[in-house]
C-alpha cells in the first residue's frame, strides 16, 4: 500500500471489500431470481399433485415430492436420536483420553467426506452386500450414515455451549448424571441441536449423489408401496430431466428447481429463525 493519506486508503479499501462482498453474495440472489422468474409459470396445484406424463415432458412431480419427503423424514428420524445420543455419550460420559479424542476427531473429519463416497459405501454395503437392492431403505441408511457425523458435531457444539458449572452445581446437589443431562444440559442445548437438525434436513433434501445408486428411480409409474421400493426424489428428478431427456420443456425443469429450492430455503429460514430467536433469549 502506498504511503498516502491513511484515511483515503481506508475508504478505498472499504470500497474494494464492498465490491468483493457484492460479487460473492449477489449470485445467490440472481440464481433465486432466475429460477423464480422462469419457474413460476408452471407452478399450479395440478403440477404439484399429478404424476409425470409423456416421458416426464408433461404432467406433475408428485412422486418426486413424496419420495423426497419420505426419504428425508425416515433419515432424520433414524439419525437425529442416534446422533444426539452419541454426542451426549462423547461429551458427557466418555472419559477424556486419547481414544476418545481420536474418535471425536474422526467423527469431525467424517463430516467432511464427500457425499459420493458415502453413496459408494452405501451401494457396496446395503444394495450389494446386504442385498437390499436399490430401495428406500438403502437410501435412507446411506443418508443416515452420511448425516450422523454432522448431527453429532453440531449437537456436541450445542452441548459444549452449556456452561460446565451448571453440571457441577447439579451434581453437587446429589442429582445423578443422566438426570442432570435430562433436566439441565439438554434443555439448554436444545436450540443449538434443533438448528443443526433443521439444517441437516435441508441438506438431506438436496442431496443427490448418495441416493443416485442406492434409492433413486429414473421413473416410477406408481408411488412407493414399501420401503423396499425405489423412489423418485426431487433433486434426482431435476438431474434427470435437465441432462438425460431430450426435448425437455425448460419451464418444467425450472418449475421443478423452484419447488426444490422453495422447500429447502423455507427449511433453512426456519433454522435461522430458531437460532436468532433463541440467541435473543439466551439466559446466561
Amino acid at each position: 500500500m502506498m504511503k498516502f493519506n491513511p484515511k483515503l486508503s481506508q475508504k478505498l479499501s472499504y470500497l474494494v471489500l464492498f465490491l468483493a462482498s457484492t460479487l460473492a453474495i449477489m449470485p445467490v440472489i440472481v440464481i433465486i431470481f432466475i429460477i423464480v422468474k422462469n419457474g413460476m409459470s408452471v407452478i399450479s396445484w395440478e403440477f404439484l399433485v399429478s404424476m409425470p406424463k409423456n416421458g416426464m415432458r408433461e404432467g406433475g412431480i408428485l412422486p418426486a415430492i413424496i419420495g423426497t419427503f419420505v426419504i428425508v423424514m425416515c433419515t432424520i428420524m433414524l439419525t437425529l436420536p442416534t446422533g444426539v445420543c452419541a454426542a451426549v455419550y462423547l461429551n458427557e460420559y466418555a472419559r477424556d483420553n486419547t481414544l476418545t479424542r481420536a474418535i471425536k476427531l474422526g467423527i469431525v473429519n467424517l463430516a467432511g467426506v464427500p457425499s459420493v463416497v458415502y453413496g459408494l459405501f452405501g451401494f457396496g454395503i446395503f444394495v450389494m452386500f446386504l442385498k437390499l437392492g436399490v430401495s428406500i431403505i438403502s437410501g435412507v441408511l446411506t443418508l443416515s450414515i452420511m448425516e450422523l457425523p454432522v448431527i453429532v458435531t453440531t449437537s456436541r457444539n450445542a452441548l459444549n455451549s452449556v456452561p460446565y458449572s451448571f453440571r457441577e452445581a447439579s451434581w453437587a446437589l446429589g442429582v445423578g448424571r443422566w438426570q442432570t443431562i435430562r433436566h439441565i444440559v439438554l434443555p439448554n442445548a436444545l436450540p443449538g441441536i434443533m438448528t443443526g437438525a433443521v439444517l441437516s434436513i435441508a441438506r438431506i433434501s438436496g442431496e443427490t449423489a448418495p441416493i443416485l445408486f442406492t434409492a433413486a428411480a429414473f421413473y416410477a409409474p406408481h408411488l412407493p408401496h414399501s420401503i423396499f421400493d425405489q423412489v423418485m426424489t426431487l433433486p434426482y428428478h431435476l438431474y434427470i430431466i435437465s441432462t438425460q431427456i431430450p426435448n425437455m420443456p425448460n419451464n418444467i425443469i425450472f418449475g421443478t428447481a423452484l419447488v426444490l429450492l422453495f422447500m429447502i430455503l423455507t427449511i433453512s429460514f426456519v433454522a435461522i429463525f430458531v437460532r436468532v430467536y433463541f440467541r435473543k433469549h439466551e439466559k446466561w
Binding site: P163, S165, L173, G174
Partner: peptide
C-alpha cells in the same frame, strides 16, 4: 455418590443459578 452429595451440600465460589 448421589446419596453422599445429598448429605454434604456444596456452595461454589461463583453463584451458579440454573437458567
Amino acid at each position: 455418590m448421589e446419596e453422599l452429595r445429598k448429605r454434604i451440600g456444596m456452595l461454589f465460589a461463583m453463584p451458579i443459578s440454573f437458567p
